Computed example of a mutant assay.
Amino acid sequence: MIIEIPGYKTLDLDYLVLDYNGTIAVDGLIPPAIKERLLLLGDSFKIYVLTADTHGTAAAMCDGLPLEIMTFPSGSAMDEKLRILSSLGAEHCIAIGNGRNDVPMCQAAALSIAVMGTEGAYGKLLSECDVCTTSIADALDLLMLPKRLVATLRG
């Protein structure tokens, strides 16, 4: 997907990189409306879910969705998320997250979206992202309706 944002930049996006808990899932569960959006976005992006899988539900909740789950239950989630995003080519990635461990990947991504939903958001993440939303539904809708992004980010 190519999105031209006047006075900002042109985005050439291939990958959607998502945090799991607090971003697409609440208490380890993905709401049905979010699953529907992920199904639709699978036509436009290669989707990755990066998670320490705190609740142990990621595989079951993502079953049947057009995405790849990458887990790292031990070690630094922050470092792993950045490593994975960089290996994909950060300049072609959208990163969406809500936590402290999402900061480096959001700083590196071509487009980053912070979600401040039910589980809250790490305050310093908000200043590192291109866009902040109050729900994952709104964040994913920005990608399905890219003129919303243009309106928000244009110069």
Results as ranks from 00 to 15, higher is better:
K35I: 09
K124T: 15
S76K: 13
L140K: 12
I2A: 06
T51W: 11
C106N: 02
L153R: 03
T54S: 04
I136S: 11
S87L: 03
L140C: 10
N21I: 11
E80F: 15
G56P: 04
A108H: 10
A52H: 10
A109M: 11
Q107W: 13
L142K: 00
K9P: 00
I34R: 00
F72G: 02
T54R: 08
P66S: 10
R83P: 09
G97F: 14
K46C: 13
S74V: 15
L65N: 06
G123L: 12
D53I: 12
E91Y: 09
Q107D: 13
A25H: 07
N98D: 15
E80V: 13
L82Q: 10
I47Y: 07
P31D: 11
D63Q: 04
A25S: 10
V103N: 10
L67E: 12
T134Y: 06
L41N: 00
C129L: 07
L29F: 12
D138G: 00
A137V: 09
G97L: 07
Q107Y: 15
S76D: 14
K124G: 01
I96Y: 11
C62G: 06
R154P: 00
L40F: 04
L67A: 13
L143H: 14
K124Q: 13
E91P: 09
I96N: 06
I113S: 00
S74H: 14
G75F: 11
A90E: 06
L13D: 05
T118W: 11
Y8L: 05
K81T: 06
L40N: 02
N98G: 05
I34M: 00
C106Q: 09
M144L: 08
I5Y: 03
S74F: 14
G22I: 08
A90G: 07
I34L: 07
I5M: 04
I3H: 08
L142D: 01
P6K: 01
Y8G: 08
N101S: 13
I3G: 13
M144Q: 11
K81P: 04
I24A: 03
H55C: 06
E80S: 15
S87H: 09
I24L: 07
K9N: 13
S112R: 14
D79E: 14
I30E: 09
G155F: 14
K81H: 12
D79I: 15
L88W: 08
A139W: 01
